[in-house]
Design a protein around this nucleic acid. Sequence first.
DNA 1: TCTTCATTCAATAATTCATTTGAATAATAA
DNA 2: TTATTATTCAAATGAATTATTGAATGAAGA
Lengths: 234, 234
Amino acid sequence: MSSLSPTLGPAPIPGPGPKRQLFEQFADLARALGHAHRLELIEQLAQGERSVEALAGKIGQSVANTSQHLQQMRRAGLVATRRDGKRVIYRLADGPVLEAVAGLQKLAEANLAEVREVVGAYFAGKDSMEPIRREELAARLRTESVTLLDLRPEDEFVLGHLPGALNIPLDQLEARLADLPEGHEVIAYCRGPYCVLSFEAVALLRARGLPVRRLEDGFPEWRAAGMGVEVGQA
Amino acid sequence: MSSLSPTLGPAPIPGPGPKRQLFEQFADLARALGHAHRLELIEQLAQGERSVEALAGKIGQSVANTSQHLQQMRRAGLVATRRDGKRVIYRLADGPVLEAVAGLQKLAEANLAEVREVVGAYFAGKDSMEPIRREELAARLRTESVTLLDLRPEDEFVLGHLPGALNIPLDQLEARLADLPEGHEVIAYCRGPYCVLSFEAVALLRARGLPVRRLEDGFPEWRAAGMGVEVGQA
DNA sequence: TCTTCATTCAATAATTCATTTGAATAATAA
DNA sequence: TTATTATTCAAATGAATTATTGAATGAAGA
């Protein structure tokens, strides 16, 4: 027991104290992020707003279960809703939700061997797989011609995508290889830095000998950076 | 139900899939942050390494309970241990633990009215209470003379503090007002951006008419920024 | 060796969480 | 109005989490 006085001194605090209160709030938020389904819902909502049923389909859960998780996140202030006819449309809240999730993900990648393994399993040759950064991509889009490849399902692509991107959902990639213009480097992206679609696409295309790199993060980060978005056009 | 094919198409995924695996890992991390006691332990460990008993005293919990929470965080990779004689000394893990917590806190402040209220309750006059930033403080320390006031308990101060800081634990502040040199602005800091010690100190000193501002964050952030630390000297 | 001390483990009771089921609500269309 | 559809609510289940107690380690000193 080191020094008693500062700890047990004249400040044993009456109620919970503002300090405990703050920590409780922070902890509540962390718990709201503490379920795989909810993180997956956040990833989905980062692509664009969605109805409960659409989200349930996306994460492969029942509508009731999805609704409960969404409500839990709404209580925590992570998402917001509006009504559209008989649907309730959920969207990400205004605050830095994705930044907080990104903080978690960075920490996980730094500290958890398991995460590095899963991510590492998608790397072929460290050097050539170095992802391209947003700014670098933006610069190259102005001067060179590169093929921007969006691997997300069509319905997510329609909600918004990088300007000029070609949409080939991952599960159609092998069949539609011919759609990729030749002679350009391909830049693959999807939902975010840990979205596996682009990892798998890079692996597939590199196995075919095509020059391809991954964008370091995905569509939501691009949009959040205010770098221009194209909507619609299936 | 919007478009079926991309969702239910040829990729229903066999096992949990690497995606679900990653989300589970991220969620585990979030849950590890999802308890007020654990966040408080992280705040403590951000000041410096500590034994289980010392930490238990700091957060006002039993040793057994504290040990369990610490082990949970160790499993999640948030903290690490070393043995020192018959003690086990816990410390923060190397990764960006504090950044992840800061992400949570920013989100809470942006999205949760309750947090803004608690924080706001410590503000007197918005303008004059604007906290001072690390870089600005560093610059002023080089040219002007300001009084750096560290409000943490002595034992935390001893583990490390800003160079030249004066340590007056909050509960002694009223009695030791005379120790503050006159004529200089006072910059108050403590454990981090949401540590209430400096908020309360600012309120108290301003009530006495003293020129005082809060450092925007605390000692751990200063140290993490590599801005120079002084150790020892009670 | 035996004792002491710091920490961890094991067992527990109380609480909270995740999921399913079926009913209730709210908006729309017939 | 009635029927339909999307979402939410309520109740119930099993699983996981938290805190408490007392016993079990494991290192240090007598």
